[in-house]
């Protein structure tokens, strides 16, 4: 597919912009983290669109954000596990 550009994104309705970004980010994340790709992509989509576009163009910045997201996700899950089982 052709690369996603800022102008393409701006032309899309707001509701579609995150979806477009997610469709591009997901395969890149899935290649490295097949089990967590859906959750990681969901987390990253909360970031600004301009930053997400930059991440699509720069694998290094994507990977550093993915690593950050995994750390946050694991901390979040660890917190859940500490809750008493009632």
């Amino acid at each position: 597919p052709e690369p996603l550009t800022a102008s393409m994104l701006a032309a899309a309705p707001l509701m579609d912009q995150k979806q477009l970004l997610g469709e591009r980010l997901y395969p890149m994340i899935h290649a490295h983290h097949p089990n967590l790709a859906g959750k990681i992509t969901g987390m990253l989509l909360e970031i600004d669109n301009s930053e997400l576009l930059h991440m699509l163009e720069s694998p290094e910045s994507l990977h550093s954000k993915v690593d950050e997201a995994i750390a946050v996700l694991q901390a979040h899950q660890a917190k859940e596990c500490q809750q008493p089982l009632v």
Partner: peptide
């Protein structure tokens, strides 16, 4: 809010409208 949200993060599945969209303010 201080509570944990077990439904977070909204998972993205290709081809499926992302559920997190409804939480984003224009």
């Amino acid at each position: 809010a201080n509570g944990t949200n077990i439904n977070w993060p909204p998972e993205f599945c290709p081809g499926v409208p992302w559920k997190g969209l409804q939480n984003i303010d224009p």
